[in-house]
Simulated scan of single mutants.
Amino acid sequence: MSGELVLYTNPMSRGRTARWMLEEVGAPYCTELIHYGTTIKQPAYLAVNPMGKVPALRHGDTVVTETAAICTYLADAFPEAELAPPLDRRGPYYRWLFFAAGPLEAAITNTALQLEPPDDKRSMVGYGSFAQVLDVLEAEVSARPYLADARFTAADLYVGAQLGWGMHFGIVEKRQAFLDYWGRVGKRPAQRRAKELDDALADADAV
């Protein structure tokens, strides 16, 4: 696939995960800094993402929003990076990507906001309970080094980013299995490069 890659992001956003994915892919890309309260709600950016949120990715004429979708798209658009398993082994890959985008993120957000569904309404929230979500994920990352294949994939990047963020802010329990898993995926060179780029962008934007 061809076309310029543009990441629309803010360093204080989920755009950090999208940048990490871009660094794993290794293709050249440009960064468009989107400011909260100003450019994020202006017509030029709303034409990219009518939700008025970041990140978003433009690849030639293709626009992708939602962080999990960006990660999935990039893995497919750049197969040489080997960030997705072969198609006949993608069941766990899709499962954990969208488990993190759905139940895990919803549970983390609700917990951070101190929103607890009543016992008789738990089936409506899609994840049951935060403890159940963490227990299921703990069992999975304890059973094997990586979630969807014998090697690191975009599923590990997205799940790892969620866990790393949640533990950093004290929302996700620092269970040993999570610490070990984050130790495997969070020390990758691409993650470090992405963090340095976003930290520098945040510092420059604060001046």
Rank of each mutant, 00 (worst) to 15 (best):
N49K: 14
P85H: 05
D149G: 10
V141P: 02
V207F: 05
F178D: 00
L113C: 01
Y127W: 04
P189R: 10
S142T: 09
E140Y: 03
Y181D: 04
A200L: 01
L113H: 01
T65H: 09
M124F: 08
L157Q: 10
E173I: 02
E105D: 14
W96T: 01
R16S: 01
G91Y: 05
T17F: 03
N49L: 14
R16M: 03
G128L: 00
A131R: 06
R188G: 04
D61E: 13
G52A: 07
A100G: 13
V141D: 02
R151C: 14
R175Y: 05
D199W: 02
F152H: 15
N49D: 10
V185Q: 00
S129H: 01
E138A: 15
A161F: 05
R175A: 05
P43T: 14
A150E: 15
F169V: 15
L87Q: 13
V54E: 09
A131F: 01
C30H: 12
E4Y: 08
Q176F: 08
I40C: 03
D203R: 13
T39I: 07
T67Y: 02
L147N: 07
P92M: 05
A204S: 08
L57Y: 07
P50L: 03
P92R: 06
A69L: 14
L147Q: 06
V54G: 10
Y8T: 09
P118D: 11
A204G: 04
F98M: 14
R193N: 08
T62G: 09
I34R: 04
H59G: 11
A194I: 00
E173M: 02
A155P: 12
E23L: 14
R90H: 12
P118I: 04
A81K: 11
V125D: 00
V141M: 04
M51S: 11
L87I: 14
P28C: 12
D180I: 02
M1Y: 11
G52E: 09
T111H: 02
A18R: 04
R95F: 13
T31R: 03
I40Q: 13
I40T: 08
F99K: 01
L22P: 10
A194N: 02
H168Y: 11
A27P: 06
A56G: 12
E196W: 00
L163V: 12
A190Q: 07
F169C: 07
G37L: 01
R16G: 02
A112G: 08
F152A: 11
N10I: 01
S13P: 09
Y36P: 06
L74M: 10
V172D: 03
H168Q: 14
T72S: 11
D180N: 06
A100V: 06
A18Q: 05
A154Q: 11
N49Q: 12
D119K: 02
A107P: 06
G102T: 13
A202E: 10
R184L: 09
E196V: 01
L87W: 11
R19V: 07
A77Y: 09
A131E: 15
R151H: 15
K121C: 05
S13D: 09
A75Q: 09
W96H: 03
V159M: 05
M21C: 14
R151N: 13
A100T: 07
R58Y: 06
E196K: 01
E140C: 04
F130G: 00
A161E: 07
G52Y: 05
L57Q: 08
L46R: 15
E196A: 06
R193Y: 07
G3D: 11
R14N: 05
S123M: 03
A155C: 13
F78M: 09
R151G: 15
A155E: 10
E173F: 02
V159W: 01
T109K: 02
T111N: 04
Y8Q: 08
